[in-house]
């Protein structure tokens, strides 16, 4: 049985990634892609990698009835239109931050409030490594933030294994590519200004801290740098555990959490050139890499994780979650590798 899918906000970067994934998905048919700016233009005119897709953008005012609606709109849009989205589709998967947090108070603290707070209790966070048991049958799914996803994936095994309990000091340094800023250009994103930067764009108070705290019960010292990549989020987490931990303990913990996960790889000091997670190695894919090392002299663990911010950190995570929610093969449409060698991803 083929399921029909719509992508609202299909002209943005994550909208394009959703269309790429859904067009190649064995169980989905792309019925509609909306864009106000590109209404009636071909999808291929905006996303050149999708020129073979026989589809034109339509107005978001004219939503078709579909099985699954993916919303790839800026923060604040989905919460305003959630009733319309749910009228149009049995399952809504939102890629914005609008339904990630569980309470109106969190949105008052971290965002600009919420206008549809009654939906927050029923929404399910999309990251299957975290919420696989809650996803089946969910009709409102919220894809996680890319920086939060990278951080949560890196630290979760330490909680699963009891190496951390949430009282530890943790410093997280994330390096991200320019696509995190979206397809709408700003002054800071012109090529002349953006190329070559290692720019601390969110030194403190990044909104993704709220998701990390919500799901790990941990307050992190979180800083994000914009670096000269297009795709990718690389999180380095400095953890100071209360008891000594060996590399063997870490291998045991990460294997226990991720050995059976279809999209998680462990890369922690083995042979070859790529000895720790790197965004280049997962660019364009739904895979996430995690790695770790022990620093006994400073009683520190250092945990690395790397994802493609638009894939595992957004559109790939959304499709993965939809697969689980709808009872499909959870890897359907997502099991392809990236490129090697490749330049700046």
């Amino acid at each position: 049985m083929t399921l029909s899918a719509a992508v609202v906000g299909g002209s943005g970067f994550t909208g394009g990634e959703l269309l790429r994934l859904l067009a190649g998905h064995p169980e989905f048919e792309v019925a509609q892609a909306t864009s106000r700016q590109y209404d009636r233009k071909t999808v291929g005119s905006v996303h050149p990698n999708l020129r073979e897709l026989d589809l034109r953008f339509s107005s978001p005012e004219d939503l078709d009835s579909v099985d699954v609606l993916f919303a790839a709109t800026p923060h604040g849009v989905s919460m305003e239109h959630i009733d319309t989205f749910q009228d149009a589709a049995d399952t809504v998967v939102d890629l914005s931050a609008d339904f990630r947090l569980q309470s109106e108070e969190q949105y008052d603290e971290w965002y600009d409030g919420h206008v549809a707070a009654e939906y927050l209790e029923k929404s399910v966070y999309a990251l299957p490594e975290l919420t696989r048991d809650e996803l089946p049958g969910a009709d409102l799914i919220a894809a996680g933030g890319c920086n939060a996803t990278a951080t949560i994936l890196g630290l979760k095994p330490l909680f699963d294994a009891g190496i951390m309990n949430g009282d530890e000091q943790v410093v997280v340094d994330v390096k991200v590519g320019s696509s995190e800023g979206g397809a709408s250009a700003g002054k800071a994103s012109s090529h002349a200004e953006r190329s070559g930067v290692v720019r601390p764009y969110a030194p403190t108070g990044h909104r993704h801290e709220a998701e990390i705290e919500q799901f790990l019960g941990l307050s992190v010292s979180f800083t994000v740098h914009a670096v000269d990549m297009v795709r990718g989020a690389s999180a380095t987490c400095h953890v100071f555990p209360s008891s000594p931990v060996t590399k063997g303990d870490l291998w045991g913990a990460y294997r226990e959490s991720y050995e059976d996960e279809p999209f998680m790889r462990m890369v922690a000091g083995g042979g070859g050139v790529y000895r720790y997670p790197e965004p280049k190695a997962v660019a364009g894919t739904n895979y996430g890499e995690v790695g770790f090392e022990v620093d006994p002299a400073n009683k520190r663990l250092v945990v690395f994780s790397a994802i493609d911010n638009m894939m595992k950190g957004s559109a790939g995570q959304a499709v993965h979650a939809a697969n689980v929610a709808l009872g499909l093969d959870e890897t359907a449409g997502l099991e392809f590798s990236g490129l090697h060698p490749v330049g700046t991803p």
């Binding site: 294997r255 890369v267 000091g269 083995g270 070859g272």
Partner: peptide, 9 residues
């Protein structure tokens, strides 16, 4: 030889 899990030589 190299380990297929962690890549160690």
């Amino acid at each position: 030889i190299d380990c297929g899990t962690c890549g160690a030589e």
